[in-house]
Nucleic acid binder design. Structure first.
Lengths: 158, 158
DNA sequence: GTTGAAAAATTCCGCCG
DNA sequence: CGGCGGAATTTTTCAAC
């Protein structure tokens, strides 16, 4: 898992294509990169085994599924040593979809997705604020998502 | 596109499975949910056409690809009416992978991914700070990603 | 929503440079 | 060893019911 897998340019090209459209058939990618389908398969298997590819996810329109509000949370801890405990508690809350331990003003930065303002208030007041170790939080509600895309890992693309 | 697509429980179950593993064959999902493979296909086509499914993405380990630093940026604007202009400029910067227009302290909340501290400084100083309309920014560097998962859209799962 | 068959993709094998 | 090509298996896709 923690192997020193060497990633060459072909690997990066493959990842770059799949990061934008993970459903693209290996045979198509093979044609695009002028190699055989089998090669794409071998390279992907290698990268999956090495843990470089962590998964395949579906991007969905949360609003259309009845989850109208996404919000960012800056969390202040009583002591930063409480990070592990608080992260463990956050993980138990399904509405928390992301959490990072950060430098700067806040100790933890989290993203939550809720159905509506009532649901958001419930999560903040009844779940987040109840976690011991959290001093206070600042909430930033997303009014509009302008950008959401993968990083560009290759110089030029086919 | 903006059709009033009705999403029932079966649709949600399908999405829930694919959000966690978008590569799972429709035939497997069909067996799991006790319907035919054709039904999964029809439902997914409906949801793709309706724009509920926005894409298929590969989750990769950025650090293993040489992108060691991810950071969050709280952006203060001179005037919040400049949002569209600034968002357009941010979109031109490939290191910016996410941007949201938000309530609260900051006008824009962005996520950037960089190779190293030098690269991060370049992006912040030479690209972000040069955008007209941006008053100042606050940077939160992610030291550890604890949680990164899809929202749970169904009550119980098979 | 289902079935079943055609088309396509994945996966795995031995072979070659 | 890494890439290739083809064949067997599985999956996707699409018609009619």
């Amino acid at each position: 898992m923690a192997k020193g897998a060497e990633i060459d340019d072909l690997d990066k090209q493959i990842l770059s294509i799949l990061m934008r459209n993970a459903k693209k058939p290996y045979t198509d990618i093979a044609k695009q990169l002028f190699v055989s389908g089998g090669t794409i398969h071998v390279r992907m298997k290698k990268m999956e085994d090495a843990g470089i590819v962590k998964g395949y996810h579906l991007a969905v329109d949360h609003e259309r599924l009845g989850y109208d509000i996404s919000a960012f949370l800056g969390i202040y801890l009583d002591k930063s040593s409480l990070y592990e405990d608080v992260a463990g508690e956050l993980e138990k809350i399904p509405e928390v979809v992301a959490a990072h331990y950060t430098t700067g003003l806040y100790s933890i930065f989290a993203t939550i997705i809720c159905r509506d303002t009532t649901h958001l208030r419930e999560v903040l007041h009844d779940k987040i604020q109840k976690i011991s170790g959290i001093q206070r939080t600042e909430t930033f509600i997303s009014l509009q998502e302008s950008i959401n895309r993968p990083i560009n890992i290759v110089e030029k693309e086919a």
